[in-house]
Amino acid sequence: MSTRLLSRAPQDTPGTWKSYLGLTAILLVSAFPVYWMFVIATSSDEAVMKSPPSVVPGDQFLANLREVFGMQDVYFTASLINSLIVALAVTASTLFFCSLAGFAFAKLRFKGNNILMFVVILTLTVPNQLGVVALYILMGKLGWNGTLLAVIAPGLVSAFGVFYMRQFIGHAIPDELVEAARIDGALTLRIYWTVVVPAIRPALAVLGLLTFVATWNDFQWPLITLNGTDFPTSMVALSDLASGNYVIYRRVLAGAFVATVPLVILLLVGGRQLVRGIMEGALK
Protein backbone atom coordinates (compact mmCIF):
# COMPACT_ATOMS: atom_id res chain seq x y z
CA MET A 1 0.00 0.00 0.00
CA SER A 2 1.35 3.41 -0.88
CA THR A 3 1.55 6.37 1.47
CA ARG A 4 -0.45 8.33 -1.10
CA LEU A 5 -3.45 6.12 -0.46
CA LEU A 6 -3.11 6.22 3.31
CA SER A 7 -2.95 9.99 3.50
CA ARG A 8 -6.57 10.17 2.39
CA ALA A 9 -9.33 10.55 4.93
CA PRO A 10 -11.59 7.46 4.94
CA GLN A 11 -14.47 9.33 3.31
CA ASP A 12 -12.21 10.12 0.33
CA THR A 13 -11.01 6.53 0.02
CA PRO A 14 -13.04 4.59 -2.57
CA GLY A 15 -14.73 1.48 -1.26
CA THR A 16 -13.01 -1.79 -2.15
CA TRP A 17 -14.77 -5.01 -3.12
CA LYS A 18 -14.46 -5.98 0.53
CA SER A 19 -16.48 -2.92 1.61
CA TYR A 20 -19.24 -3.80 -0.83
CA LEU A 21 -19.18 -7.43 0.25
CA GLY A 22 -19.52 -6.40 3.91
CA LEU A 23 -22.33 -3.96 3.14
CA THR A 24 -24.17 -6.52 1.04
CA ALA A 25 -23.93 -9.07 3.85
CA ILE A 26 -25.35 -6.58 6.37
CA LEU A 27 -28.11 -5.57 4.00
CA LEU A 28 -29.10 -9.20 3.48
CA VAL A 29 -29.23 -9.79 7.23
CA SER A 30 -31.27 -6.59 7.65
CA ALA A 31 -33.78 -7.60 5.00
CA PHE A 32 -33.97 -11.29 5.81
CA PRO A 33 -36.54 -11.21 8.68
CA VAL A 34 -38.89 -9.06 6.61
CA TYR A 35 -38.49 -11.44 3.67
CA TRP A 36 -38.99 -14.45 5.93
CA MET A 37 -42.14 -12.83 7.31
CA PHE A 38 -43.46 -12.73 3.76
CA VAL A 39 -42.45 -16.34 3.05
CA ILE A 40 -44.40 -17.66 6.04
CA ALA A 41 -47.29 -15.27 5.41
CA THR A 42 -47.71 -16.86 1.97
CA SER A 43 -47.27 -20.47 3.06
CA SER A 44 -49.56 -23.28 4.08
CA ASP A 45 -49.15 -25.10 7.40
CA GLU A 46 -47.40 -27.98 5.66
CA ALA A 47 -44.88 -25.65 4.04
CA VAL A 48 -44.12 -23.99 7.40
CA MET A 49 -43.63 -27.32 9.16
CA LYS A 50 -41.10 -29.13 7.09
CA SER A 51 -37.38 -29.51 7.18
CA PRO A 52 -35.52 -28.02 5.44
CA PRO A 53 -37.94 -25.05 5.52
CA SER A 54 -39.03 -23.70 2.19
CA VAL A 55 -37.28 -20.46 1.36
CA VAL A 56 -39.51 -19.19 -1.42
CA PRO A 57 -42.95 -17.61 -0.99
CA GLY A 58 -45.98 -19.87 -1.33
CA ASP A 59 -49.36 -19.15 -2.86
CA GLN A 60 -51.50 -18.94 0.29
CA PHE A 61 -51.14 -15.20 0.94
CA LEU A 62 -54.75 -14.28 0.16
CA ALA A 63 -56.12 -17.24 2.10
CA ASN A 64 -54.01 -16.31 5.12
CA LEU A 65 -55.01 -12.64 4.84
CA ARG A 66 -58.69 -13.61 4.73
CA GLU A 67 -58.20 -15.56 7.96
CA VAL A 68 -56.44 -12.69 9.74
CA PHE A 69 -58.97 -10.09 8.73
CA GLY A 70 -61.83 -12.46 9.52
CA MET A 71 -60.79 -13.34 13.08
CA GLN A 72 -63.47 -12.63 15.64
CA ASP A 73 -61.87 -10.86 18.63
CA VAL A 74 -58.73 -9.50 16.99
CA TYR A 75 -60.33 -6.54 15.16
CA PHE A 76 -57.48 -6.49 12.66
CA THR A 77 -59.09 -4.16 10.11
CA ALA A 78 -60.09 -1.72 12.83
CA SER A 79 -56.62 -1.95 14.36
CA LEU A 80 -54.96 -0.77 11.15
CA ILE A 81 -57.34 2.19 10.96
CA ASN A 82 -56.74 2.93 14.65
CA SER A 83 -52.98 2.87 14.17
CA LEU A 84 -53.33 5.23 11.25
CA ILE A 85 -55.54 7.62 13.24
CA VAL A 86 -53.18 7.61 16.22
CA ALA A 87 -50.01 8.02 14.13
CA LEU A 88 -51.50 10.82 12.01
CA ALA A 89 -52.90 12.69 15.03
CA VAL A 90 -49.65 12.45 16.96
CA THR A 91 -47.58 13.45 13.92
CA ALA A 92 -49.76 16.45 13.04
CA SER A 93 -49.83 17.69 16.61
CA THR A 94 -46.09 17.18 17.13
CA LEU A 95 -45.27 19.07 13.94
CA PHE A 96 -47.58 21.96 14.84
CA PHE A 97 -46.73 22.47 18.50
CA CYS A 98 -43.01 21.75 18.11
CA SER A 99 -42.57 24.13 15.19
CA LEU A 100 -44.48 26.86 17.07
CA ALA A 101 -42.30 26.44 20.15
CA GLY A 102 -39.14 26.01 18.08
CA PHE A 103 -39.92 29.27 16.27
CA ALA A 104 -40.46 31.12 19.56
CA PHE A 105 -37.21 29.77 21.04
CA ALA A 106 -35.17 30.50 17.90
CA LYS A 107 -36.48 33.87 16.81
CA LEU A 108 -38.53 35.64 19.50
CA ARG A 109 -37.20 37.63 22.39
CA PHE A 110 -38.84 36.95 25.72
CA LYS A 111 -37.75 36.72 29.32
CA GLY A 112 -36.51 33.25 30.26
CA ASN A 113 -35.95 32.10 26.67
CA ASN A 114 -32.63 30.41 27.32
CA ILE A 115 -33.59 28.94 30.70
CA LEU A 116 -36.85 27.50 29.35
CA MET A 117 -34.99 25.99 26.38
CA PHE A 118 -32.61 24.39 28.85
CA VAL A 119 -35.63 22.90 30.66
CA VAL A 120 -36.84 21.42 27.34
CA ILE A 121 -33.46 19.75 26.89
CA LEU A 122 -33.57 18.42 30.44
CA THR A 123 -36.96 16.83 29.76
CA LEU A 124 -35.30 14.90 26.91
CA THR A 125 -33.60 12.78 29.55
CA VAL A 126 -36.80 11.82 31.41
CA PRO A 127 -37.59 8.14 30.70
CA ASN A 128 -41.36 8.42 30.23
CA GLN A 129 -41.85 4.66 30.21
CA LEU A 130 -41.20 4.55 33.94
CA GLY A 131 -44.33 6.57 34.65
CA VAL A 132 -46.73 4.08 33.00
CA VAL A 133 -48.39 3.03 36.26
CA ALA A 134 -49.26 6.60 37.18
CA LEU A 135 -50.17 7.39 33.57
CA TYR A 136 -52.63 4.50 33.65
CA ILE A 137 -54.21 5.87 36.84
CA LEU A 138 -54.36 9.37 35.33
CA MET A 139 -56.06 8.05 32.18
CA GLY A 140 -58.46 6.14 34.41
CA LYS A 141 -59.48 9.36 36.19
CA LEU A 142 -59.95 11.04 32.80
CA GLY A 143 -62.00 8.06 31.63
CA TRP A 144 -59.71 7.60 28.63
CA ASN A 145 -58.29 4.12 29.26
CA GLY A 146 -59.22 1.77 26.47
CA THR A 147 -59.78 4.62 24.02
CA LEU A 148 -57.47 6.00 21.36
CA LEU A 149 -57.24 9.26 23.33
CA ALA A 150 -55.13 7.47 25.93
CA VAL A 151 -52.59 6.60 23.25
CA ILE A 152 -52.70 9.94 21.43
CA ALA A 153 -52.47 12.32 24.41
CA PRO A 154 -48.98 11.41 25.69
CA GLY A 155 -47.56 11.79 22.16
CA LEU A 156 -48.94 15.24 21.35
CA VAL A 157 -45.62 17.01 21.92
CA SER A 158 -42.01 15.90 22.03
CA ALA A 159 -39.01 17.58 23.59
CA PHE A 160 -36.80 16.32 20.80
CA GLY A 161 -39.18 17.91 18.29
CA VAL A 162 -38.92 21.33 19.95
CA PHE A 163 -35.15 21.04 20.08
CA TYR A 164 -34.91 19.91 16.46
CA MET A 165 -37.18 22.69 15.20
CA ARG A 166 -35.35 25.34 17.21
CA GLN A 167 -32.01 24.29 15.72
CA PHE A 168 -33.37 24.14 12.19
CA ILE A 169 -35.22 27.46 12.33
CA GLY A 170 -32.20 29.12 13.94
CA HIS A 171 -30.04 28.15 10.96
CA ALA A 172 -32.58 28.31 8.12
CA ILE A 173 -34.26 31.68 8.68
CA PRO A 174 -32.23 34.92 8.87
CA ASP A 175 -33.23 37.26 11.70
CA GLU A 176 -33.58 40.08 9.14
CA LEU A 177 -36.40 38.23 7.41
CA VAL A 178 -38.42 38.07 10.64
CA GLU A 179 -37.64 41.71 11.47
CA ALA A 180 -38.62 42.90 8.00
CA ALA A 181 -41.95 41.12 8.29
CA ARG A 182 -42.51 42.68 11.70
CA ILE A 183 -41.74 46.18 10.44
CA ASP A 184 -44.27 45.55 7.68
CA GLY A 185 -46.77 45.12 10.50
CA ALA A 186 -47.11 41.33 10.45
CA LEU A 187 -48.12 39.76 13.75
CA THR A 188 -46.17 36.82 15.17
CA LEU A 189 -48.60 34.12 14.05
CA ARG A 190 -48.65 35.57 10.56
CA ILE A 191 -44.86 35.48 10.43
CA TYR A 192 -45.00 31.86 11.56
CA TRP A 193 -47.41 30.98 8.79
CA THR A 194 -46.00 33.00 5.87
CA VAL A 195 -42.25 33.09 6.65
CA VAL A 196 -41.41 30.16 8.91
CA VAL A 197 -43.60 27.29 7.69
CA PRO A 198 -42.60 27.55 4.01
CA ALA A 199 -38.91 27.64 4.97
CA ILE A 200 -38.96 24.61 7.26
CA ARG A 201 -40.70 22.07 5.05
CA PRO A 202 -37.64 19.77 4.93
CA ALA A 203 -37.43 19.72 8.73
CA LEU A 204 -41.17 19.05 8.99
CA ALA A 205 -40.74 16.07 6.67
CA VAL A 206 -37.90 14.64 8.77
CA LEU A 207 -39.63 15.11 12.12
CA GLY A 208 -42.93 13.92 10.68
CA LEU A 209 -41.44 10.66 9.39
CA LEU A 210 -39.58 9.94 12.62
CA THR A 211 -42.71 10.60 14.67
CA PHE A 212 -44.96 8.52 12.45
CA VAL A 213 -42.62 5.51 12.53
CA ALA A 214 -42.17 5.67 16.31
CA THR A 215 -45.91 6.06 16.96
CA TRP A 216 -46.99 3.31 14.58
CA ASN A 217 -44.51 0.90 16.18
CA ASP A 218 -45.24 1.79 19.82
CA PHE A 219 -46.22 -1.32 21.74
CA GLN A 220 -45.92 -1.18 25.53
CA TRP A 221 -48.26 1.68 26.44
CA PRO A 222 -50.92 0.79 23.82
CA LEU A 223 -50.84 -2.79 25.13
CA ILE A 224 -51.40 -1.59 28.70
CA THR A 225 -54.26 0.76 27.97
CA LEU A 226 -55.94 -0.88 24.94
CA ASN A 227 -55.52 -4.60 25.57
CA GLY A 228 -58.82 -6.47 25.70
CA THR A 229 -60.85 -3.62 24.19
CA ASP A 230 -62.47 -3.33 20.78
CA PHE A 231 -60.01 -0.58 19.81
CA PRO A 232 -56.53 -2.10 19.60
CA THR A 233 -53.74 -0.56 17.55
CA SER A 234 -52.21 -2.93 15.01
CA MET A 235 -49.30 -3.76 17.35
CA VAL A 236 -51.74 -4.79 20.11
CA ALA A 237 -53.74 -6.80 17.60
CA LEU A 238 -50.54 -8.61 16.57
CA SER A 239 -49.88 -9.55 20.17
CA ASP A 240 -53.46 -10.87 20.40
CA LEU A 241 -52.90 -12.91 17.23
CA ALA A 242 -49.79 -14.44 18.79
CA SER A 243 -51.45 -15.18 22.15
CA GLY A 244 -53.44 -18.25 23.12
CA ASN A 245 -52.69 -21.90 23.41
CA TYR A 246 -52.67 -22.72 19.74
CA VAL A 247 -50.86 -20.17 17.61
CA ILE A 248 -50.94 -20.42 13.82
CA TYR A 249 -47.76 -18.76 12.64
CA ARG A 250 -48.67 -18.28 9.00
CA ARG A 251 -51.66 -16.26 10.23
CA VAL A 252 -49.64 -14.28 12.79
CA LEU A 253 -46.99 -13.39 10.24
CA ALA A 254 -49.51 -12.52 7.56
CA GLY A 255 -50.80 -9.92 10.04
CA ALA A 256 -47.27 -8.83 10.92
CA PHE A 257 -46.46 -8.41 7.26
CA VAL A 258 -49.53 -6.25 6.64
CA ALA A 259 -48.58 -4.04 9.61
CA THR A 260 -45.02 -3.74 8.29
CA VAL A 261 -45.81 -2.83 4.69
CA PRO A 262 -46.78 0.81 5.37
CA LEU A 263 -43.42 1.40 7.03
CA VAL A 264 -41.44 -0.23 4.25
CA ILE A 265 -43.27 2.08 1.83
CA LEU A 266 -42.41 5.06 4.06
CA LEU A 267 -38.76 3.97 4.02
CA LEU A 268 -38.77 3.76 0.22
CA VAL A 269 -40.43 7.16 -0.15
CA GLY A 270 -38.82 9.04 2.73
CA GLY A 271 -35.61 7.09 3.31
CA ARG A 272 -33.43 10.12 2.62
CA GLN A 273 -35.26 12.17 5.23
CA LEU A 274 -35.08 9.39 7.82
CA VAL A 275 -31.34 8.97 7.25
CA ARG A 276 -30.91 12.70 7.58
CA GLY A 277 -32.99 12.90 10.77
CA ILE A 278 -31.03 10.14 12.46
CA MET A 279 -27.69 11.54 11.37
CA GLU A 280 -28.77 14.80 12.95
CA GLY A 281 -29.23 13.04 16.25
CA ALA A 282 -32.84 11.84 16.39
CA LEU A 283 -33.71 9.89 19.52
CA LYS A 284 -35.28 6.48 19.33
Binding site: P33, I40, V213, F219, S239, L253, T260, L274
Partner: peptide
Protein backbone atom coordinates in the same frame (compact mmCIF):
# COMPACT_ATOMS: atom_id res chain seq x y z
CA UNK B 1 -29.48 -0.40 6.95
CA UNK B 2 -32.53 1.44 8.36
CA UNK B 3 -34.94 -1.33 7.38
CA UNK B 4 -34.74 -2.96 10.85
CA UNK B 5 -35.27 0.45 12.49
CA UNK B 6 -38.59 1.04 10.70
CA UNK B 7 -39.83 -2.56 10.98
CA UNK B 8 -42.31 -2.74 13.88
CA UNK B 9 -40.62 -4.49 16.77
CA UNK B 10 -43.78 -6.53 17.35
CA UNK B 11 -43.65 -7.85 13.79
CA UNK B 12 -39.94 -8.61 13.72
CA UNK B 13 -40.02 -10.30 17.13
CA UNK B 14 -42.79 -12.62 15.93
CA UNK B 15 -40.64 -13.62 12.94
Amino acid sequence: VLLPYVTPVAASTLV
